[in-house]
Amino acid sequence: MLPFAWLLVVVGFGADDPSHFLTLANFSTIFGSQAVLFVLTMALLVPLTNGDIDLSVGSLSGLVSMLVVVLNVEHHIAIVWCCLIGLAAGLAAGVLNGVACIRFKADPFIITLGTGTVFAGLTELLSNEQTITGVSSGLTKVIFTDEFLGIPLEFYFGLAIMLVVWYVLTFTPFGQRALFVGQSRDVARLSGFRVDRIRLQGFVVAGFVSAIAGIFFVGTTGSASPGTGSQLLLPAYAAAFLGLTTIQPGRFNAIGSGIAVYFLATGVAGLELLGAQNYVQDLFYGAILVIAVIISRLLAMRRFGRGTA
């Protein structure tokens, strides 16, 4: 359904403005400009499969991006080490989220909302509330400036991450366990699954992949700003829930979510070419999220209905 909807959007906008919409330049910018969101959406999938919500991924990616920039620009640390430190920070944040939710049996929605706010505050502290620019050109070259088929390499890195997440969730015992835990924690526990460990792993993976998204942001803009990451949270969730409706309907899946990211990006690009104001984009994202959640519930109810026959 979603690939068909995407095709419909392409055909629709293409018919309206073929000379601008149906161009290599337009599709290059669509694919190239959404890499950070693409990766951030992948970060959500493992905890969502486990049945957990992680609202800190956006702020965490912002924190990691600021950490990388501050270390490189103000402390003159080599960019490779800065990225490694950023990834380690992402892992640590994931562990923090996991321990806080699991050890204290707290609602992940509330805990990650709180930790997300903490990460946003730390970002402002690190940056002294300023945008910092001037990061090493080596990172921007590898992430953004270098292109293949006219699209920045970050798109292909994001594609690779999507395929890894898809493979892990679909074909590995880790993925199967995550699915089982997400379907019913009590049944999983009674079946002998180490539910707490599986959930912790989900948060850790989310932290690590969010950190990658933060590094991609730095590579794209050559800078970091406070408050950036948290603005990507809604679009990332919109894409993850919209991805539920395709490829493996009813299950959070990487390929479906990837298609959803670019369906949304294509829709927004088309609206921008039509001259839509920014608020129309917000309406579009919000409406798609609501509709995606409703469709996913209908699909779940339909599956439940078949299951009782």
Partner: peptide, 21 residues
Amino acid sequence: DVPIQDWATQLESDVDSALVA
């Protein structure tokens, strides 16, 4: 016209589209 709070997340795609158009 891009509000301050959207500079980091919308400017790039808005400018992309304007340059394509």
